[in-house]
Computed example of a mutant assay.
Amino acid sequence: MEKKQWGITKLYNAYFHEPASQLAKLHSKLDSLVLQLYGFQPTDDILAQLLALNQELAAKEQRGEPVIGPWDPTPSQATD
Score class of each variant (00 low, 15 high):
Ala78Gln: 11
Lys3Gln: 01
Glu65Ile: 09
Thr79Tyr: 14
Glu18Lys: 07
Glu56Trp: 06
Gln5Asp: 14
Leu51Gly: 08
Lys25Cys: 03
Gln55Ala: 14
Ala24Lys: 08
Leu50Met: 11
Ala58Met: 13
Ser76Glu: 06
Glu2Ile: 05
Pro70Asn: 04
Leu33Gly: 00
Lys4Cys: 02
Trp6Val: 06
Thr43Gln: 15
Tyr38Ser: 03
Gly39Ala: 12
Trp6Ile: 03
Leu35Met: 11
Ile8Met: 15
Leu37Ala: 10
Asn54Val: 07
Pro70Thr: 03
Ser28Cys: 01
Ala14Thr: 07
Asp80Gly: 14
Ala48Thr: 15
Gln22Asp: 01
Ser28Trp: 03
Glu2Tyr: 05
Asp80Ser: 14
Gln36Val: 05
Tyr12Val: 10
Gln62Arg: 12
Glu61Arg: 15
Ala14Gln: 05
Ala24Trp: 01
Lys60Ala: 15
Glu61Asn: 14
Ala14His: 02
Ala14Ile: 00
Lys4Phe: 05
Leu51Thr: 15
Pro70Cys: 04
Ser21Gln: 01
Leu51Phe: 11
Glu61Thr: 14
Thr74Asp: 04
Lys29Gly: 02
Phe16Ile: 13
Val34Thr: 05
Gln77Trp: 00
Ser76Thr: 02
Lys60Val: 09
Ala58Pro: 01
Pro42His: 13
Trp6Tyr: 15
Leu35Ser: 03
Trp71Met: 11
Val67Asp: 09
Phe16Lys: 05
Asn13Trp: 12
Pro19Met: 07
Leu35Lys: 06
Glu56Asn: 09
Pro75Met: 04
Ala59Met: 08
Lys29His: 05
Ala20Trp: 00
His27Asp: 10
Leu33Thr: 02
Gly69Asp: 08
Met1Asn: 03
Leu51Tyr: 12
His17Leu: 14
Leu26Thr: 05
Thr9Leu: 15
Leu50Pro: 00
Trp71His: 11
Asp44Trp: 13
Leu26Met: 06
Asp45Thr: 00
Glu18Thr: 09
Ser32Pro: 00
Gly64Glu: 13
Pro70Gly: 11
Phe40Arg: 03
Glu2Gln: 08
Ser32Tyr: 03
Phe40Lys: 04
Ala59Gly: 08
Gln5Leu: 12
Glu65Met: 12
Phe40Trp: 15
Lys60Pro: 14
